[in-house]
Write a protein that binds this DNA or RNA. Structure first.
Lengths: 368, 368
DNA sequence: GGATCATGCAGAAACCTTTCTTCTCAGGGT
DNA sequence: ACCCTGAGAAGAAAGGTTTCTGCATGATCC
């Protein structure tokens, strides 16, 4: 109230009008700040009359407790980080785009339902951002081998739960992951049952656990059934490399008559390559890819996809994390393996077999 | 160091080992906490030797300033909210899913580049979450008529920038939106030029500005060229209603020979309906829809889409918001209208015309 | 040679809550 | 009459930073 005192009604959306503090409420209600705090938080020994009175005064003054002060005092911010692996400048790569979006959506819902908010943070980036936000815990998606940020967080005692098995011996508090081996084996069996004689794989060159587990499962299956492996690996974070790799795979002399693609755009990549080579789908070439996109229901022909059920994963990860933050649940690290779902469409049905799907385990409780 | 002093190396991932504070650094470096703060923040008058020494000691101790304390003192949290309209239990509806995901991605990048992190918050939900997080500002997507949360934020003086024109007289500090009228007019002209005689519209029943502006632009165009309007409106938040509406539109006696669908899934909806009625695309029916999905490049036939360029929007919104937070830029509200991009594919080309696209205005600077 | 001045650093307030501890007072038991 | 108990409420510390103000010290200037 210095020089600005003479034009009061000038700008209601001004610089930032001084908010009412707990002191102001106490003064207006004629009680101490302790009483205000207790009344508003339902603590202490106060008669209902006092509680109501304080609440009413606080409402009238538009009082909102300072989150910063509360965090400082209680050590709890109500914020959990969602750490995404960054490729180049952008958070999360395109190949896992739909997956990540769905997973983040579910994680947001789950966190909000328990009174927490999600902060999106880049992995292993300039850590001034990391230092500037008080986190009660962090979800890290696909932790890389020795992520310095995660290591640092764990060292500080911040609970960390990962989506995907942690590589190396990263001591996360819990992780959730799909049963990737079983998923791949299921797909290969499905294709073989539909009449595939030589099944190819479109895989990645990176060393994350998803790629690794899926590839080794494929190789094991090939060995078991006595098929020579036919696969192409490409850098999955490159948006164009998928098309090239798909083309290469179908250009081989030992061209497969069925292909499973590990990454979301591979369905489109393979379909385009098949058209170039005049291959009919599914008659000459059967196709399956791992994707969350509903667009594969509308391609010509519709493509069979493997869904990793990201909503289930996102929900589970957040539940585990908040349990760890609040100290409920087991003290030991938890490992939760979630089933996948094969959505069978035309591209993997050479004859009109059955159209049922095969959820590998457990009753399907939720729609996610 | 009370009872826990006797088993030091017991659990490195223990409860939460007490972090080093600025006091500890000061003591270890043999200086005052003022000096530590100044040395680390590049303020005050200190010789470089002292600065280096303090920094080194701080590093050795693994000192990280408490974000809560800093926020409390400075009034700045480095956090900006991303408010999404919630439908039912879930944040953001499916119809704007791809748009939102892309927009959020760009917003995250832009915020991080300027040292801010993004918090995802639900609109008009239980506001205990809102009260618990200190926000420097908020981006609100598609603000509804009288959103209580946004009103409250503005009242508190928190900068608010909206993606989409604010409905009513919501006093946001700035907004960014596409030129929806121009986009619709461009599409209608494009279809007419390709030979469409009667153009239909698939629109929504909700009252948000996007739906409203697009629909009135369509009606105006119809009046101008003397065509009877042919449209169906449906509740866009219902994932199944789109198919039904598409079917109804094509079942009409005055069936259109070209349709523009305002929402992302409408391309698939219309394509499926066209198949049911035995209509060839684009020969009997031309199709355009508003979508960010790349899947429409792989449908049969590929479908022409209107992209709202969500990455540009997300970036612009965050820049505007941070400018407002940091007090740079104009004091008056800013309104920024961004161009859209029509991606012409087979579904809207009856004869083999040109394949060029028509960005309504401005040079295409970035790829987003 | 004393006033002035810049330099290097320290003290302490302020930010706003939550919570531990303490105080007062009324009433009931013996 | 006394002690004890419990309710109701207040005092004050603590949480960790930033930053304003101020105190020395040595160098500079007339």
């Amino acid at each position: 109230m210095t020089a600005a005192g003479n034009h009061q009604a000038s700008r209601p959306v001004g610089r930032r009008l001084e908010r009412a503090g707990i002191r102001d409420v106490a003064a207006a209600a004629g009680v101490s700040i302790t009483t205000v705090s207790d009344a508003l938080n339902g603590k202490g020994r106060l008669p209902d009359a006092t509680r109501r009175h304080v609440r009413e005064v606080a409402d009238r003054l538009g009082y909102r407790p300072s989150a910063a002060a509360r965090t400082l005092r209680t050590g709890r911010s109500g914020l959990i980080g969602l750490t995404v692996t960054t490729y180049g400048e952008e958070p999360f790569t395109f190949t896992e785009f739909a997956y990540f979006a769905e997973m983040a959506r579910a994680a947001t819902s789950a966190a909000l339902a328990r009174g927490y908010a999600l902060v999106i943070l880049p992995a292993s980036s300039r850590h001034d951002v990391w230092g500037n936000v008080a986190l009660d815990g962090t979800v890290v998606v696909d932790p890389s081998d020795q992520d310095p940020v995660v290591t640092e967080l764990v060292r500080q005692g911040v609970p960390v739960v990962s989506d995907g098995r942690p590589a190396g011996s990263l001591p996360v508090h819990a992780w959730v992951d799909n049963d990737h081996e079983e998923a791949v084996l299921g797909i290969l069996d499905h294709l073989a049952a539909a009449g595939a004689r030589r099944i190819g794989l479109l895989t990645g060159t990176s060393t994350d656990t998803y790629t690794r587990l899926s590839t080794t499962a494929y190789l094991e299956w090939c060995e078991r059934v006595g098929q020579e492996p036919v696969y192409e690996a490409y850098p999955a974070h490159d948006p164009c490399a998928g098309s090239v790799a798909a083309d290469r795979l179908l250009a081989r002399p030992d061209r497969p008559d069925a292909v499973y693609g590990l990454f979301d755009p591979n369905g489109t990549d393979l379909l385009a390559a098949a058209r170039r080579y005049g291959l009919r789908v599914p008659d000459d070439l059967m196709l399956v890819c791992c994707s969350e996109s509903t667009g594969y229901a509308a391609t010509e022909p519709p493509i069979t996809t493997l869904s990793l059920k990201p909503r289930r994963i996102g929900t589970a990860v957040v539940q585990l994390l908040i349990d760890a933050i609040e100290g409920v649940g087991p003290a030991q690290p938890v490992q939760q393996v979630m089933p996948t779902e094969l959505i069978v469409r035309t591209s993997s049905q050479r004859r009109l077999h059955r159209t049922t799907v095969s959820p590998p385990r457990g009753p399907a409780r939720e729609e996610g």
